[in-house]
Amino acid sequence: MKLLIVDDSTLIRRAIERFANKFQFDEIRSANNGANALKEFKSFLPEVVTMDITMPEMDGLTCVEAILREKPDVQILVISALADKSTAVEAIKRGASGFLLKPFTEETLITSLEELFEE
């Protein structure tokens, strides 16, 4: 199983990678904005994606839609600090499988990824 981490922050990309090691992904790659994520997705074809929302170039919600057009069965966990309920609702509407609010801890990320796999 492969994981693509999309976030404009190096700190967050590295934290997700460290915390997600528990799941023994075959390969983990990352992208720093929506446009790069879409390019990476097309060649990498991961089963799981973690996606930030506020990013330069292409925002996360637009990227979620574009990725799902490429591969409708991919599991996308949106990880954002935007705490208003409408953002989470919008993410799910666009096809995300889950929503995790920043700041997150190792425990909350693992729980969210486990919930994704249960589905």
Binding site: S9, A83, L101
Partner: peptide, 15 residues
Amino acid sequence: DSVGEIVSIITSNAR
């Protein structure tokens, strides 16, 4: 990167 991410999270949470 970290100081940018911290302020981004704090401000975004305020939404």
